[in-house]
């Protein structure tokens, strides 16, 4: 029984981080209908920002988090302006953008690996290896902190989307781009800002990931499938759905890992992705198969 509880807690602790990793992806898809396969490689970039901040200047990764967000947001503005704005009129837009983001995933991976080699890295603030004990079960402190920060950021995003004027514009564009445009929303600008926010979230996730998982540039391939499984299960574009899916899959993966070993634990995400795409392409919360 204690075992079960322990696994559940470990799964939930990671769920928050996965949720944040997927949230930006979901936002970008919602507003721009871009399946951003480069998102995980951008998270990787955020992780390196935090890593070097800690390694060179001893700055705590959670303190580096805003820095990573700003750097990634700037990257987002640049990418949007140089690449995605001009693709908006492309005939096979969704397919085109998938291939393009895939290409950029390779560019970022290659750039990171060239600059920092493929050595396995991890940021090691004190709390990363600490844990608190409650009776027989323990909660790793690093994962706990990362989970809390993730939930705070996602909560802030949700409030912003729900109540700010620009949040209205973002939601409206997600739900009906043409109608939003007709009502006076500058959808291109909304796209730019959402893209930047999405990448800022990738940066934040990267900073947290840097002390939760060990990482190296080519690891983003594994994350692609993991994150895709979250957003696809949650219903592409639904941030709430992504969060719920993150917790579900994270817990399931923790159990699979406990009973069948760590390798098969990752397989959970891949198989879930495959099955969801084929059985219910709209995901848990989607209403129509937008991707199909």
């Amino acid at each position: 029984m204690a075992d079960i509880l322990q696994i559940l807690i470990l799964g939930l602790a990671l769920g928050g981080v996965y949720a944040l990793m997927g949230a930006g992806l979901s936002l970008v898809f919602g507003v721009m209908r871009i399946v951003n396969l480069a998102h995980p490689s951008l998270i990787m970039m955020g992780a390196y920002v935090a890593f070097w901040g800690f390694r060179l200047y001893g700055i705590d990764p959670i303190v580096m988090l805003p820095v990573a967000m700003v750097i990634l947001a700037a990257t987002g503005v640049l990418l949007y302006k140089l690449v995605f704005e001009r693709e908006a009129k492309s005939a096979k837009y969704s397919e085109m953008t998938v291939l393009l983001t895939f290409a950029f995933a390779m560019v970022f991976e290659g750039a990171l690996a060239t600059a920092f080699t493929n050595t396995q890295r991890v940021t090691t603030p004190d709390y990363a290896v600490d844990a608190i004990f409650i009776g027989n079960v323990f909660i790793p402190l690093g994962q706990l902190y990362a989970g809390i920060v993730s939930l705070v950021l996602i909560g802030a995003l949700a409030l912003y989307l729900k109540y700010s004027r620009f949040g209205y514009a973002i939601r409206a564009t997600t739900q009906n781009r043409e109608a939003a445009e007709l009502l006076g929303v500058n959808v291109n600008f909304v796209g730019l800002v959402s893209f930047a926010i999405g990448l800022a979230l990738a940066g934040a996730a990267g900073a947290l990931v840097s002390f939760v998982f060990s990482f190296f540039p080519s690891k983003h391939w594994e994350w692609i499938a993991i994150l895709m499984s979250l957003v696809v299960l949650g219903g592409m574009g639904s941030i709430l759905g992504t969060v719920v899916a993150a917790y579900i899959l994270s817990v399931v993966a923790a159990f699979v890992g406990f009973f069948f070993g760590a390798t098969l634990s990752t397989l959970t995400f891949f198989v879930a992705l495959f099955v969801v795409l084929l059985v219910r392409p709209q995901g848990l919360f989607g209403e129509k198969p937008e991707l199909a």
Partner: peptide, 13 residues
């Protein structure tokens, strides 16, 4: 059974 981006993602999976 799925097409477009879904198919691409399923192939990656």
């Amino acid at each position: 059974r799925v097409r477009g981006p879904s198919f691409i993602i399923s192939s990656l999976a």
